[in-house]
């Protein structure tokens, strides 16, 4: 039988809880307040009940944005995670080149989002950007302001460029923590490269990889700045992801009520997915013991 858990230590996080209350909980409560009311500014509110939630659930605009968002997160995870592992496996394990690679890999992570957006916005331009100009010169039609596929390719490649390093660094940390004895045992058993990866490296990396997937999923699901700077949500609505749509609604149209209802549903989805990820992660950890 398991021992009972003593949860009293949680009281030690009370100071943080107070900080979080002011920075997150109370603002979130305000959003709940807005979601059931209508306002035309000047701090005047009118009761609207569940109207906005109903409107949002029926809104094709929101479902379309959610679809695009899931597609975006799915694509970047499918690229970044295997690529990050591949990079980590091929990085020098020690010495000067190892440190060099680590620094080089961290560089994209240090660049602010809007700068990344600007870099790619210029990089992809057909008139002055290196990428756009080169593709155009090769006869490939590429224009991210008019062509949906080009716009998607640009924001996906941009995100891969910006964040694969994070997955690679985490995977590298996981790899470094594997004692040599495992590899020696594998050698004695004459395990091939794939078996070493499948039965030693991958299980040992599982924990950090889950963290990487969780971080990348959350970040990409809430992404705003980069695609906004590059495509502004266009062409048409092709790259209008959830947060871009939300900002358009809340600040562009000043529809605080619907926007609040929208953000609450957005929040619930993120909370649910994070909870599932977290649970899977801790269950895996517990199994590995």
């Amino acid at each position: 039988m398991n021992k009972t858990v003593n949860q009293k230590a949680w009281f030690l996080v009370l100071p943080v809880l107070i900080l979080v209350a002011f920075s997150a909980v109370i603002p979130l409560m305000t959003v709940v307040n807005y979601s059931v009311q209508d306002t035309f500014g000047q701090n005047q509110f009118f009761w609207a009940g569940l109207e906005w939630f109903e409107e949002m659930l029926d809104s094709d605009r929101m479902w379309a944005a959610l679809g695009r968002q899931l597609m975006f997160s799915g694509i970047i995870l499918a690229i970044e995670v295997p690529l990050g592992i591949f990079v980590a496996l091929n990085m020098p394990k020690s010495g000067f080149w190892s440190s060099f690679c680590l620094v080089l890999m961290s560089l994209p992570l240090l660049i602010p989002w809007n700068v990344v957006g600007t870099i790619w916005q210029i990089f992809g331009r057909v008139d002055i950007g290196l990428l756009g100009y080169t593709l155009d010169a090769l006869g490939i039609s590429y224009n991210y302001t008019q062509d949906t596929f080009a716009a998607w390719a640009t924001i996906v490649v941009m995100d891969v460029w910006h964040w694969t390093s994070l997955v690679a660094l985490l995977a590298f940390a996981g790899l470094k923590s594997i004692p040599d004895a495992y590899y020696q045992a594998a050698k004695i058993d004459q395990a091939n490269r794939w078996a070493v990866f499948r039965f030693i490296e991958l299980p040992k990396m599982a924990g950090v990889l889950m963290i990487a997937i969780l971080l990348r999923f959350m970040d990409s699901f809430m992404i705003y700045t980069e695609p906004f700077v590059v495509t502004g949500g266009g062409p048409g609505n092709a790259t209008t992801l959830l947060s871009i749509d939300l900002v358009k609604m809340a600040l562009g149209q000043f529809d605080l009520g619907p926007a609040a209802a929208f953000s609450l549903m957005y929040f619930l989805v993120i909370l649910l997915i994070s909870f599932v990820f977290y649970t899977v992660m801790t269950t895996i950890d517990a199994k590995e013991g």
Binding site: K3, V5, T283
Partner: peptide
């Protein structure tokens, strides 16, 4: 409740350990 009646986490239908919280 958590303070007054400490509990053991249990594994339910979802196959994960859960406490009351």
């Amino acid at each position: 409740l958590a303070i007054k009646f400490p509990e053991t986490p249990r594994r339910g239908v979802l196959g994960m350990e859960t406490t009351r919280g």
